[in-house]
Every structure is written in C-alpha cells, then in structure tokens.
Design a protein around this nucleic acid. Structure first.
Lengths: 217, 217
DNA sequence: ATATGTTTCAAACGTTTGTATCAAACGATC
DNA sequence: GATCGTTTGATACAAACGTTTGAAACATAT
C-alpha cells in the first residue's frame, strides 16, 4: 500500500492547484477539468483520490489551509515571545506582522485570505474545521494573553469583539487588495505592508485599552 | 412604448430575485433558471430584458445596490447633522449606526454586504461603478469631515487607512454573521447590534485620534 | 378592426458540468 | 516473472448550463 507514502505527486498537485483556483475564483467558478488540467493529471483523478469535487474542497482546508494557519500562529507567538511582555501594543503589532508579513509568501497570503473570507461569508462543511480547530483555539490564546492587561471595565464579550475587530482589519487588508490599492494608490510592496502594520497596531490600541499606556497624560 | 413605464413588473422582479440569489450564493452558483423561477417568469426573460446573465449582475448593482448605498449614506449624514459637530467620536458612531442599524431591513443589510464583499475580493465589471460612484465620493466626504479634527501627525494617507479600517470592521460584522455568532454566542438581535455600535465606536477612536478627547488624563 | 411594437412563452440549441466505467499501466510481493 | 492492489487514462453519460428562436399573447394607436 502507498497509504503511508506521503509523496503522492498527483494528489499533492491536485491539492495545490485546487487551492489556487478555489481561492482565485470560488468553488462554483472552478471546474474539475480546470483543476485536473492545471495539475497535469487525468480528469478522473479528483474522484479517485477525493471521491468528489466537494470533498476535494474540504480537503484543501484540512491539508493546506489549516496547516498554514498554524504556521502563521507560530510566527505570531515567536515574535511575541521576543518581547518583554504581552501588552496590547505588542500583541497588536505581532498580530499585524504575522498576518501581513509573517512566514507566508504573497501568493500564499492571497490564497489563505481569499479562502477564509469566502468561508466566513458563506460557511460550508469546511467551516466547522476552520472554526473549531483554528479560530477558536487561537482566539482563546489571544484572550488569555490579553486578559491580565485588561482595563477594569472590559468583560469577556467585549474582549472577543475587540479580537474580532482586529481580525476584521487584518483580513480586509489582505482580502480587498484591489480596493485598497484603488483607494490609496499604493501597491502591496514591502514599504506599504510595513505601513499597514504600523497603522493596524495604532488603530487597534483603543479597543484593546492600550491607549492608557500610549497617552499618559 | 413602455420604455418610460417604470413599472415593468417582470424586470423589477428579476432584479429583486437576482440580487437576493447573487448575494446568497455568489454569481456562479446561481443559474438563470433559478432566477427566473424565483421571479415567476420565463427563462428567456433574463436575456430579453438584460441581454445576458452578466449584464443582469451589473444591473443589480446599478439599479439596486448603489441606490441603497445612497440611502445608507444619507442616514449617516442625517444622524451626524443632529450632532453639534463632527468629532471623531460622533463620526464613528454615526457610521456604525448607519451601517448596522440604519435605514435597511436585516434582509437588505445582508444582501448589501454580501454583494459588496464579494466584489471587494474579486472585482468584476460592477466594481468600477461601486468604487467610482459610491465608495470614493463617500470616503472623500468622510475625509473632509474629519480633516479639521485631525491630530497634528496624521497625513492624508493615514486618514484613508483609518477610514478603510472602520469600513473593514463594519463590513465584517455584517458579512461574517455566522462566524461572529459562533464566536460570541450571540444572535443579531437589536440588543447585540446596539452593543456592536458601541464597540465599533470605541474601537475606532484611537486611529481617528479621538482618544485624546475620551481619555483626558 | 387592423396594424404595430413589446413582452412572454415553450422548445431547442450547442456546451460544459460532475461523475462513472473499465481497460491499461504501474509497483510491490511472492 | 506471475499476481496482486493501486493508480492512471480515454471515453461515456445524463444533467444542467447560458443563450437563441419563432410563434403566441399583449397593449396601443391608427
């Protein structure tokens, strides 16, 4: 058996090309023929390896998206561990850096956020996996980090709303590149991404209570 | 001729049903047959009235989405005019209210944001209309309102980033309802929407420089 | 009533869709 | 080298797709 053989080139190529196409066009705009042509394999390969087009889509999230999300989270924790302590400022900056610069190539970042935003707006079978095994654990970590630094008045729900809002911004600046470029006139080069990290860090502070440290008087 | 007859029921029903379905499922997941069945008319009606499915999609934005966006903007200006002056706080609150409570029904709000977020991530022919005739003029208005209250250090680009970030949050809380409900455990009833308005108002202040007024010491 | 322009309708067009089939090729084990 | 399970390949299939067609139905004006 080649069950343990992790080097099934056809299966891997299918996952790669399927992810790229699903991210770029959305599930329904991509045909099985398009995927198999891009992966340089036979049309029947999708149904042989994954049973159906829909299974392939879910498997893209399990085998590609979720592991990559984990890499981003590790990058976040690493850059945060380099700081003295987890203040709202350092958390916000580490988050922005992980998701805007981080360990991903530009192409990977693009795929990653196209896929997740599509899922957020129109949850499918894959969303259970995303929510339960990626989002919720990470949000819990973030909440635990931030709780000790909370201003007195911020309850659990308020903290979650702040975390969601930070993600909203991070997702938006990765997802809506075309619109952002159109409105700002700036391409997503290194300079602009660095600018965005600064912006997101600053913008997030009030909600997270960080302004009390930033604006002493 | 009935060119001037604005009560073409078939054409209007097609626009209504097409918008609902495009918002719910996305362009490619909706078939012309599905639209015409929902609009209780013949299959050929789409091609007769709009020439093609793609034209119908663009026309949904021109005849439905853009006018609705104008209503939301008016609602924003009205609730802002009721204030003494346009401080970052009042602008942020008026924006959140217009887009989360505002003049739209829940169903309209859902359609509206599903459609625009799909366009933001994957711009089509309709995006030109959205960007040039809706977004840019409104952003310009916002910028003009906020400029007099700017903290000294904030340049034009920084202001645009702050406006984009506010919109990112507003869009997200309308677009990703399923995920937000899953993470917070709260349904989108009136109480929660009021809570979100408070949250968005607070969260946006730092970027807009409002914390200097909110936190005097 | 007749003629005219507009809208609706059922039916069919040629493609493309996701999936199924089955023989050929492959790779490991005996 | 024959035999096995596994993978690939060309081909076929019914269903669904967007669009076209031409006749019927309609409204309006002469």
């Amino acid at each position: 058996m080649s069950q343990n053989d992790e080097h099934d080139p056809t299966k891997e190529r299918l996952l790669d090309q399927a992810e790229a196409l699903f991210a770029q066009k959305g599930y329904d705009a991509v045909s099985v023929r398009e995927i198999t042509t891009a992966a340089r394999c036979n049309l029947a390969a999708v149904n042989y390896h994954f049973g159906s087009k829909e299974n392939l889509y879910v498997e893209v999230f399990r085998a590609r998206w979720a592991p990559r999300a984990m890499r981003v989270q590790e990058s976040f924790r690493d850059s945060l561990a380099a700081q003295d302590e987890a203040s709202p400022t350092t958390v916000a900056r580490a988050l922005a850096e992980a998701f805007l610069i981080g360990p991903l190539s530009d192409e990977e970042r693009y795929r990653h956020h196209q896929l997740i935003v599509r899922e957020l707006g129109q949850p499918t079978e894959a969303f259970k996996l995303v929510a339960d095994e990626v989002m919720r654990p990470f949000f819990r970590q973030l909440a635990d980090m931030l709780r000790p630094t909370l201003p007195k008045g911020l309850d659990k729900e308020g903290l979650m709303l702040n975390i969601l809002s930070m993600f909203a911004i991070v997702l938006h600046f990765n997802f809506a590149r075309a619109a952002v470029t159109r409105m700002t006139g700036r391409e997503y080069d290194e300079a602009f991404k660095a600018r965005l990290v600064e912006h997101i860090t600053e913008f997030s502070l009030n909600g997270l209570g960080g302004h009390q440290q930033e604006v002493p008087r």
